[in-house]
């Protein structure tokens, strides 16, 4: 009996009077940023610290050219004599002091970290954005259209899930390498990295959005929109999309941490960002060569930065999931 199309749902007893929802004048913020979420943020020290660290890193990446003492990739500003300066100790030859030290080429580690953070964050954000757009669109389509469209999209997703995402990224990277002519390789490397990580990460977006869409599309507001003859595209984007975004936000945050780590892993393996545009992962790979000869700072500070960044973003994502979860419909 339960699968009857018109099984009446009597006795729907809304508990809205139980909710202590304050009736404030609606502001633009309220629709996106529910008051409960901000409250939970204010009362979670971990979230506040994580947010401050993340924000500080993003800002220093954006303003790297102004904060950094030198541009480490401008050969004119380098002095080989400054090589292997210890952190905070004046260089024996030039007398210059670098508070995080320098590498073998005399590049200031502090500056390379700022510039590396730029690449890492840029790749991370773009890869997540790519995965998000792709995953959300495919998830919406699968959930709303159903039928064989759904079957194809979700089977592809299932197959991809059986491979570790780093393997998928490696594969895509390898293929791109073979296709792109050698003179463009360094130039295109960042974009290849973005596509590789993004393609390995769209599945979770698609799965979550499809699930939420299946719930939303049977709600009566969607039927009301169909009734007046709105096209499926308009219904998906204007009606359903805004209502499935909160879980997407959570996944996007956690994915950002994963994407940054994935980028670092690929770069560490030597298949990611080229040495001309080093990311944190590239810096760690370079630093690794000097670890056992005593120049620990070349590895340590980029690694610490990566750890702090990935941890903060992840903690932020965890908090966001907990804050939004009881409200996920």
């Amino acid at each position: 009996m339960s699968n009857l199309p018109d099984a009446t749902r009597q006795g729907v007893e809304p508990l809205d009077r139980m909710e202590p929802a304050e009736v404030v004048q609606p502001s633009r913020w309220r629709s996106i940023w529910d008051a409960d979420v901000t409250w939970s943020f204010r009362h979670s020290p971990v979230a506040v610290v994580a947010a401050v660290v993340t924000l500080a890193m993003i800002l220093s990446a954006i303003f790297a050219p102004w904060i950094a003492t030198t541009n480490p990739f401008d050969p004119a500003s380098l002095n080989l004599m400054n090589g292997f300066s210890r952190p905070g100790v004046p260089n024996a030859f030039t007398g210059e002091s670098f508070w995080l030290g320098t590498d073998d080429q005399g590049r200031d580690v502090w500056s390379t970290i700022l510039y590396g953070l730029r690449i890492s964050l840029f790749v991370g954000f773009m890869a997540v954005l790519f995965a998000l757009v792709l995953g959300v669109l495919l998830g919406l389509l699968a959930g709303y259209v159903g039928g064989w469209v759904e079957t194809i999209i979700m089977r592809v997703a299932d197959v991809q899930l059986t491979f570790p995402s780093i393997l998928v990224a490696l594969l895509i990277f390898g293929v791109a390498r073979g296709v792109i002519p050698i003179e463009y390789r360094d130039q295109m490397a960042i974009w290849v990295l973005i596509v590789a990580i993004g393609l390995s990460d769209w599945v979770q977006f698609a799965r979550v959005v499809r699930g939420a869409t299946l719930v939303e599309k049977n709600k009566e507001y969607v039927q009301a929109a169909r009734l007046i003859g709105r096209k499926p595209g308009a219904i998906m984007l204007k009606h359903i999309l805004p209502n499935v975004l909160s879980p997407v936000l959570v996944i996007a945050t956690i994915s950002l941490a994963l994407a940054i780590i994935a980028e670092a892993t690929l770069s560490f393996l030597g298949v990611g960002a080229p040495p001309t545009q080093p990311s944190l992962g590239t810096l760690i790979r370079i630093g690794q060569d000097f670890l056992f000869s005593g120049e620990w700072w070349i590895l340590f500070f980029p690694a610490l930065t990566l750890l702090a960044l990935a941890l903060s973003v992840n903690l932020l994502g965890d908090w966001l999931r907990d804050a939004l979860n009881p409200r996920l419909r």
Binding site: T8, R9, V12, P14, D16, K219, E220, Y221, Q223, A224, H239, P242, N243
Partner: peptide, 10 residues
């Protein structure tokens, strides 16, 4: 529709 909570886009 029946359900006034589901028939308006939140």
């Amino acid at each position: 529709f029946q359900d006034p909570f589901a028939s308006l886009n939140p």
